[in-house]
Amino acid sequence: MRLLILDDEKDVCHFAAKLVKKRINEYAPTEDRPFVLGLPTGGTPKKMYDRLVEFYQEGQLSFKHVITFNMDEYVGLPIEHPESYHSYMWQNLFKHVDIDPENVNILDGNAPDLQLECANYEAKMQQLGGVKLYIGGIGPDGHVAFNEPGSSLASLTRVKTLNMDTIRANARFFGDDISKVPTQALTVGVRTVMNAEEVLILVSGAHKAMALRMAVEEGINHMCTASAFQMHPNAIFICDDDSTLELRVKTVKYFKDLMKVHAKIAD
Protein backbone atom coordinates (compact mmCIF):
# COMPACT_ATOMS: atom_id res chain seq x y z
CA MET A 1 0.00 0.00 0.00
CA ARG A 2 1.28 3.40 -0.92
CA LEU A 3 0.25 6.64 0.79
CA LEU A 4 0.82 9.93 -1.00
CA ILE A 5 0.52 13.12 1.04
CA LEU A 6 -0.15 16.25 -1.00
CA ASP A 7 -0.95 19.82 0.05
CA ASP A 8 -4.67 20.10 -0.58
CA GLU A 9 -7.73 18.62 -2.27
CA LYS A 10 -6.89 20.23 -5.58
CA ASP A 11 -3.47 18.57 -5.63
CA VAL A 12 -5.03 15.24 -4.65
CA CYS A 13 -7.51 15.45 -7.51
CA HIS A 14 -5.03 16.65 -10.08
CA PHE A 15 -2.63 13.89 -9.18
CA ALA A 16 -5.41 11.32 -9.41
CA ALA A 17 -6.48 12.64 -12.81
CA LYS A 18 -2.91 12.51 -14.06
CA LEU A 19 -2.60 8.93 -12.93
CA VAL A 20 -5.89 7.96 -14.60
CA LYS A 21 -4.73 9.60 -17.81
CA LYS A 22 -1.40 7.80 -17.62
CA ARG A 23 -3.00 4.41 -17.01
CA ILE A 24 -5.46 4.78 -19.87
CA ASN A 25 -2.91 6.12 -22.32
CA GLU A 26 -0.22 3.55 -21.57
CA TYR A 27 -2.83 0.82 -22.00
CA ALA A 28 -3.73 2.32 -25.41
CA PRO A 29 -7.26 0.91 -25.40
CA THR A 30 -9.02 -0.14 -28.60
CA GLU A 31 -12.54 -1.28 -29.32
CA ASP A 32 -11.53 -4.92 -28.84
CA ARG A 33 -9.34 -4.16 -25.89
CA PRO A 34 -11.10 -1.51 -23.81
CA PHE A 35 -9.83 -0.06 -20.56
CA VAL A 36 -12.17 -0.89 -17.67
CA LEU A 37 -12.36 1.92 -15.11
CA GLY A 38 -14.19 2.01 -11.79
CA LEU A 39 -15.50 5.42 -10.74
CA PRO A 40 -16.73 7.09 -7.55
CA THR A 41 -19.12 9.93 -6.83
CA GLY A 42 -19.01 12.40 -3.98
CA GLY A 43 -17.44 15.71 -3.09
CA THR A 44 -13.75 14.85 -3.22
CA PRO A 45 -13.56 13.46 -6.77
CA LYS A 46 -15.30 16.43 -8.40
CA LYS A 47 -12.07 18.24 -9.12
CA MET A 48 -10.60 15.04 -10.51
CA TYR A 49 -13.42 14.91 -13.05
CA ASP A 50 -12.89 18.57 -13.90
CA ARG A 51 -9.26 17.81 -14.63
CA LEU A 52 -10.10 14.75 -16.70
CA VAL A 53 -12.48 16.89 -18.76
CA GLU A 54 -9.67 19.38 -19.31
CA PHE A 55 -7.38 16.58 -20.47
CA TYR A 56 -10.08 15.49 -22.89
CA GLN A 57 -10.59 19.03 -24.19
CA GLU A 58 -6.84 19.47 -24.64
CA GLY A 59 -6.74 16.26 -26.66
CA GLN A 60 -4.56 14.44 -24.11
CA LEU A 61 -7.14 11.81 -23.23
CA SER A 62 -10.02 10.00 -24.89
CA PHE A 63 -12.78 7.92 -23.31
CA LYS A 64 -13.77 6.36 -26.58
CA HIS A 65 -12.64 2.89 -25.59
CA VAL A 66 -13.05 3.22 -21.84
CA ILE A 67 -15.73 1.21 -20.09
CA THR A 68 -16.80 2.58 -16.74
CA PHE A 69 -18.38 0.96 -13.70
CA ASN A 70 -19.68 3.27 -11.02
CA MET A 71 -19.65 2.23 -7.41
CA ASP A 72 -23.22 2.76 -6.31
CA GLU A 73 -26.66 4.28 -6.79
CA TYR A 74 -29.71 4.89 -4.61
CA VAL A 75 -32.69 2.57 -4.87
CA GLY A 76 -35.89 4.13 -6.16
CA LEU A 77 -34.47 7.52 -7.05
CA PRO A 78 -35.30 8.55 -10.63
CA ILE A 79 -32.14 9.00 -12.69
CA GLU A 80 -33.11 12.58 -13.51
CA HIS A 81 -33.17 13.45 -9.79
CA PRO A 82 -30.32 15.94 -9.27
CA GLU A 83 -28.92 13.83 -6.41
CA SER A 84 -28.87 10.58 -8.34
CA TYR A 85 -25.41 9.31 -9.16
CA HIS A 86 -26.52 9.07 -12.77
CA SER A 87 -27.01 12.85 -12.67
CA TYR A 88 -23.71 13.36 -10.88
CA MET A 89 -21.77 11.39 -13.48
CA TRP A 90 -23.57 13.08 -16.34
CA GLN A 91 -22.93 16.57 -15.00
CA ASN A 92 -19.37 15.99 -13.91
CA LEU A 93 -17.97 13.76 -16.62
CA PHE A 94 -20.06 12.03 -19.26
CA LYS A 95 -21.63 15.02 -20.92
CA HIS A 96 -18.24 16.61 -21.42
CA VAL A 97 -16.31 13.73 -22.96
CA ASP A 98 -16.41 11.31 -25.87
CA ILE A 99 -17.55 8.27 -23.94
CA ASP A 100 -19.86 5.85 -25.73
CA PRO A 101 -23.18 5.55 -23.84
CA GLU A 102 -22.96 1.80 -24.41
CA ASN A 103 -19.79 1.76 -22.32
CA VAL A 104 -21.24 3.38 -19.24
CA ASN A 105 -22.35 1.17 -16.38
CA ILE A 106 -24.16 2.51 -13.34
CA LEU A 107 -26.25 0.28 -11.12
CA ASP A 108 -29.95 0.72 -11.87
CA GLY A 109 -31.72 1.45 -8.59
CA ASN A 110 -35.07 1.18 -10.37
CA ALA A 111 -34.50 -2.27 -11.84
CA PRO A 112 -37.44 -4.64 -11.31
CA ASP A 113 -35.16 -7.28 -9.82
CA LEU A 114 -32.45 -5.57 -7.79
CA GLN A 115 -30.63 -8.76 -6.90
CA LEU A 116 -30.41 -9.76 -10.52
CA GLU A 117 -29.20 -6.26 -11.41
CA CYS A 118 -26.35 -6.66 -8.89
CA ALA A 119 -25.44 -10.14 -10.07
CA ASN A 120 -25.37 -8.99 -13.70
CA TYR A 121 -23.19 -6.04 -12.80
CA GLU A 122 -20.65 -8.24 -11.10
CA ALA A 123 -20.74 -10.73 -13.98
CA LYS A 124 -20.24 -7.99 -16.57
CA MET A 125 -17.07 -6.77 -14.84
CA GLN A 126 -15.70 -10.28 -14.92
CA GLN A 127 -16.62 -10.87 -18.55
CA LEU A 128 -14.61 -7.81 -19.44
CA GLY A 129 -11.59 -9.23 -17.65
CA GLY A 130 -12.05 -7.28 -14.45
CA VAL A 131 -11.56 -3.64 -13.58
CA LYS A 132 -8.11 -2.25 -14.33
CA LEU A 133 -8.32 0.70 -12.02
CA TYR A 134 -10.93 1.40 -9.37
CA ILE A 135 -11.05 4.89 -7.91
CA GLY A 136 -12.84 5.53 -4.65
CA GLY A 137 -13.28 8.02 -1.88
CA ILE A 138 -13.82 7.24 1.77
CA GLY A 139 -16.49 8.38 4.19
CA PRO A 140 -15.80 9.83 7.64
CA ASP A 141 -16.49 6.34 9.06
CA GLY A 142 -14.11 4.75 6.59
CA HIS A 143 -16.75 3.45 4.21
CA VAL A 144 -15.98 2.76 0.57
CA ALA A 145 -18.93 3.02 -1.81
CA PHE A 146 -21.95 2.19 0.41
CA ASN A 147 -20.00 -0.41 2.39
CA GLU A 148 -20.71 1.08 5.77
CA PRO A 149 -19.06 -0.13 8.99
CA GLY A 150 -19.81 -3.77 9.53
CA SER A 151 -20.06 -4.64 5.84
CA SER A 152 -18.39 -7.88 5.01
CA LEU A 153 -14.94 -7.44 3.57
CA ALA A 154 -15.83 -10.34 1.25
CA SER A 155 -18.98 -8.58 -0.04
CA LEU A 156 -19.83 -8.33 -3.72
CA THR A 157 -22.33 -6.08 -5.49
CA ARG A 158 -25.62 -6.11 -3.60
CA VAL A 159 -28.60 -4.26 -2.17
CA LYS A 160 -27.68 -2.41 0.97
CA THR A 161 -29.96 -0.87 3.56
CA LEU A 162 -28.39 2.38 4.65
CA ASN A 163 -27.74 3.02 8.29
CA MET A 164 -29.14 6.02 10.12
CA ASP A 165 -25.80 7.86 10.11
CA THR A 166 -25.59 7.76 6.35
CA ILE A 167 -29.22 8.75 5.91
CA ARG A 168 -28.78 11.65 8.30
CA ALA A 169 -25.57 12.74 6.57
CA ASN A 170 -27.31 12.63 3.19
CA ALA A 171 -30.36 14.64 4.28
CA ARG A 172 -28.51 17.82 3.29
CA PHE A 173 -28.77 16.71 -0.33
CA PHE A 174 -32.53 16.23 -0.07
CA GLY A 175 -33.67 19.58 1.28
CA ASP A 176 -32.83 18.60 4.85
CA ASP A 177 -35.87 16.34 4.79
CA ILE A 178 -34.87 12.98 6.18
CA SER A 179 -38.04 11.36 4.84
CA LYS A 180 -36.90 12.09 1.28
CA VAL A 181 -33.53 10.34 1.63
CA PRO A 182 -33.54 6.93 -0.01
CA THR A 183 -33.07 4.20 2.57
CA GLN A 184 -31.54 1.62 0.27
CA ALA A 185 -28.77 1.61 -2.26
CA LEU A 186 -27.10 -0.73 -4.68
CA THR A 187 -23.37 -0.88 -4.16
CA VAL A 188 -20.33 -2.76 -5.28
CA GLY A 189 -18.86 -4.80 -2.46
CA VAL A 190 -15.49 -4.48 -0.77
CA ARG A 191 -14.31 -7.53 -2.64
CA THR A 192 -15.54 -6.09 -5.92
CA VAL A 193 -13.12 -3.21 -5.46
CA MET A 194 -10.43 -5.54 -4.12
CA ASN A 195 -10.71 -7.53 -7.34
CA ALA A 196 -9.51 -4.56 -9.38
CA GLU A 197 -5.92 -4.64 -10.56
CA GLU A 198 -5.22 -1.27 -8.99
CA VAL A 199 -7.12 0.78 -6.40
CA LEU A 200 -6.86 4.51 -5.89
CA ILE A 201 -8.43 6.04 -2.78
CA LEU A 202 -8.82 9.82 -2.56
CA VAL A 203 -8.96 11.39 0.90
CA SER A 204 -9.28 15.07 1.69
CA GLY A 205 -10.26 17.22 4.63
CA ALA A 206 -9.84 17.08 8.39
CA HIS A 207 -13.19 15.32 8.80
CA LYS A 208 -11.66 12.27 7.09
CA ALA A 209 -8.65 12.15 9.42
CA MET A 210 -10.02 9.45 11.75
CA ALA A 211 -11.09 7.35 8.80
CA LEU A 212 -7.65 7.59 7.22
CA ARG A 213 -6.00 6.58 10.48
CA MET A 214 -8.32 3.59 10.83
CA ALA A 215 -7.68 2.64 7.23
CA VAL A 216 -3.89 2.78 7.21
CA GLU A 217 -2.64 2.51 10.81
CA GLU A 218 -5.10 0.16 12.50
CA GLY A 219 -5.67 -3.45 11.65
CA ILE A 220 -7.93 -4.72 8.93
CA ASN A 221 -11.42 -4.38 10.31
CA HIS A 222 -14.90 -4.39 8.83
CA MET A 223 -15.73 -1.39 11.01
CA CYS A 224 -13.57 0.60 8.58
CA THR A 225 -14.04 -1.06 5.23
CA ALA A 226 -11.30 1.01 3.58
CA SER A 227 -8.80 -0.85 5.78
CA ALA A 228 -9.29 -3.87 3.51
CA PHE A 229 -6.97 -2.27 0.96
CA GLN A 230 -4.03 -2.98 3.23
CA MET A 231 -4.31 -6.43 1.68
CA HIS A 232 -4.49 -5.16 -1.87
CA PRO A 233 -1.29 -5.70 -3.87
CA ASN A 234 -1.65 -2.42 -5.66
CA ALA A 235 -3.50 0.17 -3.63
CA ILE A 236 -2.67 3.87 -3.42
CA PHE A 237 -4.14 6.31 -0.92
CA ILE A 238 -3.82 9.90 -2.10
CA CYS A 239 -4.55 12.32 0.70
CA ASP A 240 -4.13 15.96 1.59
CA ASP A 241 -2.37 17.38 4.63
CA ASP A 242 -5.58 18.01 6.56
CA SER A 243 -6.66 14.40 6.41
CA THR A 244 -3.38 13.24 8.00
CA LEU A 245 -4.09 15.06 11.29
CA GLU A 246 -4.80 11.86 13.19
CA LEU A 247 -1.86 9.89 11.77
CA ARG A 248 1.27 9.33 13.82
CA VAL A 249 4.16 11.66 13.11
CA LYS A 250 6.18 8.60 12.23
CA THR A 251 3.67 7.46 9.62
CA VAL A 252 3.52 10.87 8.00
CA LYS A 253 7.30 11.22 7.98
CA TYR A 254 7.76 7.78 6.54
CA PHE A 255 5.43 8.42 3.62
CA LYS A 256 6.58 12.00 3.09
CA ASP A 257 10.11 10.67 2.74
CA LEU A 258 8.88 8.35 0.05
CA MET A 259 7.25 11.21 -1.88
CA LYS A 260 10.50 11.59 -3.88
CA VAL A 261 9.64 8.26 -5.45
CA HIS A 262 5.86 8.34 -5.27
CA ALA A 263 5.54 11.78 -6.82
CA LYS A 264 6.77 10.32 -10.08
CA ILE A 265 4.24 7.52 -10.46
CA ALA A 266 1.86 9.66 -12.44
CA ASP A 267 4.51 11.12 -14.75
Binding site: I79, E80, H86, W90, F94, K95, P101, E102, V104
Partner: peptide, 13 residues
Protein backbone atom coordinates in the same frame (compact mmCIF):
# COMPACT_ATOMS: atom_id res chain seq x y z
CA UNK B 1 -35.09 17.12 -24.64
CA UNK B 2 -33.28 15.88 -21.58
CA UNK B 3 -30.50 14.06 -23.33
CA UNK B 4 -29.17 12.54 -20.10
CA UNK B 5 -32.14 10.17 -19.99
CA UNK B 6 -31.59 9.11 -23.57
CA UNK B 7 -27.89 8.63 -22.90
CA UNK B 8 -28.64 6.25 -20.04
CA UNK B 9 -31.83 4.60 -21.23
CA UNK B 10 -31.55 4.41 -25.00
CA UNK B 11 -27.75 4.48 -25.05
CA UNK B 12 -27.98 6.75 -28.07
CA UNK B 13 -25.22 9.05 -29.19
Amino acid sequence: IDYMQIFYEERRK
